[in-house]
Design a protein around this nucleic acid. Structure first.
Length: 472
RNA sequence: GGCGCGGUACCCAAGCGGCUAAGGGAACUGUCUGCAAAACAGUCAUUCGGCGGUUCGAAUCCGCCCCGCGCCUCCA
């Protein structure tokens, strides 16, 4: 079974064949750090992190680059508002973003290039485009001429002519075509600016991605990702600039776009004001539950955010955690090893579920299907447990496969025993409750249960003794 | 106006031409239990927005219609 990926460029699922396997170079559009990150950012980066993890699981060596747009209108306005330097603002929110990503168990990118640290590269790019007559200069900056690039529209499948009827584009009459976009913006008073052949100014938004992605990943690379809203105009423009200058096609082999997080079915965005920051959400919910919630839906579909859906997702995740802690408890209390032959049998049984997991992921990263495979795997294991499977080798295998598959999805199950109170105290109370139970002093036993509950500990009696876990 | 996505049980959500329409949550019944909890067993869509069509066969393909959403302006 080969990995198939939906490519926005062709609007089809295609077999994934990287340019130079096992290397896979991927670039994902990052944030503009002028405010706290919201749930939509969380979903986007969890999606691409999961894709990256799966590619690595398949044996690819992934180089992952994610830019930081640290100079643009929003940053300039916000820093002016706050009376601080734009670089201070950008640094602050970049850090805050990385902290939130850590909580979501998003692996760090290999490189986080910043726009402001690549001005010379961008100037070179713009110069190149001007020299070739693809870009032209106006009073307020340098523009890319979409008419000079016949391939314009190939990604978003729209032709400049199509949109004229909409009349919502460009009021800038000086531009030759309403779709022409700024490569360089002439500085206005008080803005951060850099020297260039076109005077003081700053780069336009799109050029940074062309300059930085190709600098770190080469003039052609495998995967370029981002939110659906970036497809047009951002990615279309990036593509136009890059192919116009390098002449190499395709610049990017696979374009991936994730669906939005919605609130009451409407896109969550800063401009609509209907967004939740990750900080808000994490004050109410475990970030791992939020990640799990995202993965319950295919990455290209919209996902509607609501507290009740997060809670429902939390119950599902809990089931997996419960399974692991139960297995671990049984391993601790297991008295004998399994014969190798039996372990081999178990291995074979479990492989069927691993295959199912992979088949789902191979089909355009169907995480919902992959999760279903994990639940089915657990169901199988539980039945074996119910039939009396107690041999350590088999138990370990069950645990290992579940942990293996969940970790491919970046779901960290934790140790399950990260409590504040000491384990000794808990064990002590459990022992006392056990003796109370032996004496049929159920009143006292229940009191101890209550006491533990107040410490956030839930206990469960099993034939192998009493287990405990922290309240969630 | 142009381009595009989606409507599957009470909720979420896979499936995209043919095995009994995955899986999760909620609910209900039973087993187990001092009580719990967890787990296990069972129940929960003769049907996939509607109407036609293609086909031996359609949730899956085609047409029309209804509804919801996105992009075309900064946006993950």
């Amino acid at each position: 079974m080969t990995l198939r990926i939906y490519n926005t460029l062709t609007r089809k699922k295609e077999d994934f064949v990287p340019l130079a396997p096992p290397a896979v170079n991927m670039y994902v559009c990052g944030i503009t750090p002028y405010d706290e990150s919201h749930v939509g950012h969380g979903r986007a980066y969890v999606v691409f992190d999961t894709i990256r993890r799966y590619l690595e699981y398949c044996g690819f060596r992934v180089k992952y680059v994610q830019n930081v747009t640290d100079v643009d209108d929003k940053i300039i306005n916000k820093s002016r508002e706050l009376g601080i330097d734009s670089s201070v603002l950008a640094t602050k929110f970049t850090q805050s973003f990385l902290d939130e990503m850590d909580k979501l168990n998003v692996k760090r990118a290999d490189i986080y290039p910043k726009a402001t640290e690549h001005i010379p590269e961008m100037i070179r790019w713009i110069s190149g485009l001007v020299e070739r007559g693809i870009a032209y200069q106006l009073a307020d900056g340098v523009y890319f001429s979409v008419e000079k690039f016949p391939g314009y529209g190939q990604l978003s499948h729209r032709k400049p002519a199509d949109n004229e009827a909409g009349a919502r584009v460009g009021v800038d009459s000086a531009k030759k075509n309403p779709f022409d976009f700024a490569l360089w913006k002439t500085a206005k008073a008080g803005e951060p600016s850099w020297e260039s052949p076109w005077g003081l100014g700053r780069p336009g938004w799109h050029i940074e991605c062309s300059a930085m992605s190709t600098k770190y990943l080469g003039e052609q690379f495998d995967i370029h990702g981002g939110g659906m809203d970036l497809e047009f105009p951002h990615h279309e423009n990036e593509l136009a600039q890059t192919e116009a200058l390098t002449g190499k096609r395709p610049w990017v082999k696979y374009w991936l776009h994730n669906g939005f997080v919605t609130i009451n079915k409407q896109k969550m965005s800063k401009s609509l004001g209907n967004f939740f920051t990750l900080k808000d959400i994490f004050s109410k919910f475990d970030p791992m539950v939020v990640r799990f919630f995202f993965l319950l839906t295919h990455y290209r579909s919209p996902i509607n955010y609501s507290d009740s859906e997060i809670i429902a997702a939390g119950e599902g995740l809990n089931k997996i955690k419960q399974f692991i802690s139960e297995i671990e408890f049984l391993i601790e209390h297991s008295t004998h090893e399994a014969p190798p032959l039996e372990v081999a049998d178990m291995e074979e049984e479990l492989t069927a579920f691993r295959d199912k997991f992979r088949a789902a992921m191979d089909d355009d990263f169907n995480t919902a299907g992959a999760l279903a495979a994990i639940f089915e795997l657990m169901k199988y294991c539980r039945q074996a447990l119910a039939e009396g499977e107690r041999e350590a080798g088999c138990l370990r295998l069950m645990r290992d496969v579940v942990v293996e598959l969940t970790s491919v999805l970046g779901i960290n199950l934790g140790s399950g025993k990260s409590q504040v109170v000491s384990g000794e105290l808990i064990e002590e109370l459990i022992d006392r409750r056990m003796s109370a139970k032996k004496d049929k002093d159920y009143k006292k036993a229940d009191e101890i249960r209550q006491q533990l509950l107040q410490m956030g500990i839930i206990i469960e009696d099993t034939p192998q003794g009493t287990r405990w876990k922290t309240q969630t």
